[in-house]
Simulated assay, not measured.
Amino acid sequence: MQMILQDLPLGRNIRTIRLSKEMTQKEVAEKLQLMGSLISRTTLANIESGRRNIKASDLKALKILFAVDYSEFFKD
């Protein structure tokens, strides 16, 4: 399982994008699960707060779900 280290404000950027799409953590987790991810709302909350790393596959799914470029996740 590949994990991305959070040396950039990745979690904060995910939260910012999610809020700009007017989605709750629960909605995002449910949509990701329909896409084949095993992510839970709690896991997403921990990723957004920087307490947990994100799987590369989940980041790819978020990119598709939010319809954004990867660069949006890695802004300073």
Rank of each mutant, 00 (worst) to 15 (best):
A29S: 14
G50P: 10
Q6Y: 01
F74Q: 09
G50T: 11
F66P: 12
D7Q: 07
T16N: 12
P9D: 14
E27A: 15
V68N: 04
L62R: 08
G36I: 13
A45Q: 12
A56G: 01
P9Y: 00
L5T: 12
S49M: 08
K63F: 00
L65S: 08
R52Y: 10
Q2Y: 11
M1D: 05
S37M: 11
L32D: 06
K60I: 13
L32H: 05
K26T: 12
A29H: 00
S57I: 12
D7S: 02
I4D: 09
L62W: 04
S20A: 14
A61Y: 06
L44P: 10
P9H: 11
Y70G: 01
R12M: 06
T16Y: 04
L62E: 03
R12K: 13
N46H: 11
N53T: 11
K60H: 11
E72D: 13
I47R: 07
I39W: 02
N13F: 03
I17M: 04
S37K: 09
K31H: 09
R12E: 15
A67C: 00
I64P: 01
L34N: 15
D58H: 12
N13T: 07
I4C: 06
S71C: 02
V28Q: 03
K75N: 08
K60V: 13
Q25S: 08
R15T: 00
D76K: 09
T42Y: 06
